[in-house]
């Protein structure tokens, strides 16, 4: 696969390592009333859709950036790739 790095252009997926569901970025509030239950969901439960999926890739052999890649898991079509930092700031 080729991943469209927002700064470096198309790069081969061999340069990246895969983490999984981008929901890993949505770390629960540790002080919330149901923090433990929220963390259990966060740590153990993932969606695994056949279709469009937002996922985290680490550009390990490149600039060491984490990317949020939106990918169709059926066709492997990549719809977008953003720097995770930018996504995290936007969501914050």
């Amino acid at each position: 696969m080729l991943i469209p790095h927002p700064l470096l252009g198309l790069r081969d997926a061999q340069e990246f390592t895969y983490l999984g569901d981008a929901n890993m970025m949505a770390r629960p509030d540790p002080t919330g009333p149901d923090a433990e239950a929220a963390f259990c969901d966060y740590v153990f439960l993932r969606d695994n859709p056949a279709g469009v999926h937002r996922e985290l890739w680490f550009h390990e052999q490149g600039d060491r950036s984490w990317l949020v890649v939106t990918r169709n898991t059926v066709t492997h079509e990549i719809l977008s790739a953003e720097l995770a930092t930018d996504v995290a700031r936007k969501d914050a």
């Binding site: 470096l8 198309l10 081969d12 052999q61």
Partner: peptide, 22 residues
């Protein structure tokens, strides 16, 4: 390197993997 030639035209620099090394 598994990169298009233009990625390493004179004046360019990039990190990538080579023989399982970075």
């Amino acid at each position: 390197v598994n990169l298009p030639a233009a990625t390493l035209d004179p004046g360019c620099a990039t990190r990538t993997s080579f023989e399982h090394m970075s």
